Measured scan of single mutants.
Amino acid sequence: MSIQHFRVALIPFFAAFCLPVFAHPETLVKVKDAEDQLGARVGYIELDLNSGKILESFRPEERFPMMSTFKVLLCGAVLSRVDAGQEQLGRRIHYSQNDLVEYSPVTEKHLTDGMTVRELCSAAITMSDNTAANLLLTTIGGPKELTAFLHNMGDHVTRLDRWEPELNEAIPNDERDTTMPAAMATTLRKLLTGELLTLASRQQLIDWMEADKVAGPLLRSALPAGWFIADKSGAGERGSRGIIAALGPDGKPSRIVVIYTTGSQATMDERNRQIAEIGASLIKHW
C-alpha cells in the first residue's frame, strides 16, 4: 500500500482519535458579512469528516447552483462504474471539434489522439474542462443518470439537468442544476469515506481534487503551510461562485467545507476574496 493510499485508508482512524471539535460562531459572522459585502445569498456548511456531524452552517438547506462543483460527483459516478466493471479508466475516447464547448483548455489539445477516461476526469476536476465533463456525462448516460446515481446514494436534493455550459445559467428560483450545502457536503463525505467506492477509487477521487489547479484564489489562499486540501470550485452566471473541499491540518483532511453564493453584482475577484476570507476565519478558529 502506498503512503497516499495509507493516508486515505486511515482518515477515519486518525479522526477518531482527534480531540473533540467545537464550532466557532466567528466564522458564521464572516459568512454573514460576506453576504453584506456581496449583496447576495451565501450558503455555508462545515462537517466533521469522521462523524458527519454538522459543526457550523448557514442557509444549509437553500438551493444554490452547483456550477462546476458537480464534476466531482460526476467522476465519482464514473469511478463507481469502474468498480462495477462497467468502465475502464484506460479506455480512450475520441471526439471532434464539434464536441468542444466553451472553456476546454485540455480537451482542445487532444482532438487528434483523444483522451482516456482517467485523463478526462483529471481534466474535468483539476482544470474544470467543460468538454471533458460533457464527454464523461455521455459515458454514464447524461445528466439524468448522474441525478439517479445521487438518488441511489441517498441524495434526493442534488440534481443535474443540463450539460456544460448551460448548467451554469443560475436563474433565480430555478431548481435545475442545483444542490443544497448540506446535501453536497453529505454526498461528498460519502464519496470520500464511505463504502460506495473502493479504496482505490476513493484515493483516485481525492487525488484529482488535491491536484486542483484553478481554485488557488479561494480556500487555498488562506491555508497555512502543512495543511491538506482537496477541492473543486465552480463559477456561473449572475454572480455565482462555489467551492467544495476536504481539508485539515497535519497533512490530512478532517472536515468537509461547502460554500456557495449566487445573485451578486460583485466582480469575480471580490467573490473570490470573500470566500478566501471565510476560509481564513475557519482556519483561525479551527
Rank of each mutant, 00 (worst) to 15 (best):
H24A: 11
I275C: 11
G239C: 14
D99A: 10
L218C: 12
G142H: 00
A200I: 03
N173S: 10
V117F: 01
D83N: 02
R81G: 08
L146I: 01
E175Q: 11
E169F: 00
V42C: 15
F70Y: 15
S68R: 02
L137D: 02
V257I: 15
Q86C: 03
I206T: 12
E62D: 09
Q97W: 03
K213E: 11
L49M: 02
Y103N: 11
V29E: 09
K284W: 03
H94Y: 07
L188A: 14
M115Q: 03
A84E: 11
H24S: 08
E169N: 00
I283F: 05
I244V: 11
T112R: 04
R255N: 09
Y260D: 10
E108M: 05
A222I: 15
R162M: 00
L192K: 10
C121G: 00
S281H: 12
D48A: 06
L111I: 07
A222W: 15
A200L: 00
K53F: 07
N173L: 10
A182I: 03
L191Q: 11
G234H: 05
R189H: 14
L38W: 00
C75K: 00
G234L: 06
H156P: 10
L38K: 00
L247P: 11
R159L: 07
T158A: 13
A132N: 07
R63V: 09
T186Y: 00
G76L: 06
F149C: 01
Q88G: 05
P217G: 11
R273A: 10
V82R: 02
L47K: 01
E87A: 01
K190R: 11
S254A: 11
G76I: 10
R271I: 13
D177W: 14
R59Y: 04
R162W: 04
V257R: 15
P25M: 03
E26S: 09
G234K: 12
D36R: 07
K232T: 14
A246N: 12
G263A: 00
Y95G: 12
S254M: 02
T147N: 03
F58P: 01
T107R: 02
P165N: 00
G90Y: 12
R273G: 13
G242L: 05
Q86T: 08
D177K: 11
K252W: 05
G154Y: 04
P60I: 05
A132D: 05
G194V: 03
G194S: 09
D48I: 13
G154W: 08
T187R: 00
A211I: 07
F70G: 05
S104H: 09
T187H: 01
G142K: 02
S68C: 09
F228W: 14
L38M: 00
E62L: 09
D33V: 11
D129K: 01
I93M: 00
E175V: 04
C121R: 00
T138E: 04
R63W: 11
A148C: 06
C121M: 03
Q86N: 07
I244W: 11
A230Q: 11
H151Y: 04
L55C: 03
D48P: 09
L167V: 01
E56T: 14
R92L: 13
A183E: 09
S51V: 02
M184Y: 11
E87F: 12
D177I: 11
E102V: 00
E164F: 00
F58M: 09
L196H: 08
T131W: 07
D33I: 14
A148Q: 08
G90T: 05
M184V: 06
D36E: 13
T187E: 08
A34T: 08
L192D: 06
L146Q: 05
Q204P: 00
A225F: 14
T107P: 07
D174W: 07
R238W: 05
P143G: 08
F228L: 13
A40Q: 08
M209S: 05
E87Y: 10
F70C: 00
T186F: 01
S201N: 05
A235E: 15
M67R: 07
I256Q: 11
T27I: 08
T186A: 08
L89V: 03
G154K: 02
L28I: 11
G39D: 11
M67S: 15
T187Y: 00
V72L: 07
R59N: 15
V72A: 03
I278Y: 04
N134R: 01
I259H: 06
G234R: 11
T267I: 13
E46A: 07
N50D: 13
T126R: 14
T262S: 08
D250P: 09
A235S: 00
L47H: 04
A182N: 06
H151T: 06
R118V: 05
R176G: 02
A183I: 06
T267N: 12
D83K: 10
L223I: 03
F228C: 15
L150N: 02
V42R: 08
I283W: 08
K30I: 15
G154V: 07
A34R: 05
V157T: 10
G52E: 12
G194R: 00
T116P: 05
G90E: 07
V101Q: 13
P143S: 07
E195Y: 00
D212F: 00
G236N: 00
E164N: 10
G76H: 05
N134S: 01
L205G: 05
D212H: 15
E119S: 01
A225Q: 14
H285C: 01
K30M: 15
I229G: 13
L120I: 05
R202G: 01
H151D: 02
R81H: 08
R241Y: 14
L247Y: 12
T187P: 13
V31N: 13
P172W: 08
G142V: 00
L218M: 08
L137N: 03
R255C: 06
M67N: 01
M184D: 10
G141E: 03
T131L: 04
E35I: 06
I45G: 09
A280L: 13
S281K: 03
K144I: 11
K213F: 06
E61G: 01
T27F: 13
G85P: 07
I206S: 08
Y44T: 07
E102Y: 00
R238D: 00
S128K: 14
E169K: 04
T158W: 15
V31Q: 05
M115P: 06
E102M: 00
G242A: 05
I125M: 13
G279E: 15
G251Q: 12
L28S: 06
N272Y: 04
L47M: 08
E237F: 14
T198K: 04
T138P: 01
I275K: 13
